[in-house]
Amino acid sequence: MPTTLTAFADVTTSDSALRRFLHGLPGVDAVGLEARAASLGTRSIKTTAKAYAIDLAISMIDLTTLEGADTPGKVRALSAKAVNPDPTDRTTPMTAAVCVYPDMVATAKAALNGADVKVASVATAFPAGRAALPVKLADTRDAVAAGADEIDMVIDRGAFLAGRYLDTYELIKSVKEACVRPDGSAARLKVIFETGELSTYDNIRRASWIGMLAGADFIKTSTGKVGVNATPANTLLMLEAVRDFKEQTGIQIGVKPAGGIRTTKDAIKFLVLVNETVGEDWLSNHWFRFGASSLLNDLLMQRQKLSTGRYSGPDYVTVD
């Protein structure tokens, strides 16, 4: 299998070439897509499968706090929880990462103290992305310099919706370059499309391809800051995109639904989508993440229920 983008080299040579390519992608029938996502949502995941799914989901969480009111104390508490989600059960897996604003990266990094939990930082004038390119790049470099392992950037939805696809592509490429550290290694780049603002499924498929062609390591649904965030349907569509991209280029790209996933039941539905669309190659936190905060406690309560046979309640998980 090829592991190269050469087959697509010509599609990013000009705005018109990129437009022709994106508009030549197969359309998405909204009713059919949502029906398929809903039908996978009826899978019944019980006992051993549920236990597996809960631990997998915990290990895939980017435990997130993205508030104006974030303080070093809040970030330290979150980091401690990421490393040790359930103080009563040390077999509980760690979350994949903590996700914070750039100015909190150093705090998070210090609090994690070398634990195998990544620090992800939003950047590029998150969440709106309304800033000049040099500002976005400086924002990115700043987070990387502070020790971020991963960068969650936002695309310029305005440019995309105005049809300036090449600008969108170039932005992602520039940010990707800004993720490179002095030693040549690089922070992994997650590209947020804000699917709720792109509004149509055709747009989400096109945005996915722009992101993948530009070098995204992950494509991510949403910031969590608008009305419509991750849904089973838009995540299914993005999974189809990374599946097709890998078949054509050999390059595997991760997917991160974010925002609005609050319950174990929801999380398991997303894992079923992964399992039955792209398969086990994506069933690890290197390739699939949940951007979430309150989800973790529900997973922990369900995990306690499975191991003890009774429901505990919100007082038996930590509030951070």
Partner: peptide, 10 residues
């Protein structure tokens, strides 16, 4: 066989 094997759910 997958790593995510669904348990029977009759």
């Amino acid at each position: 066989a997958s790593v995510f094997e669904y348990a029977p759910a009759p």
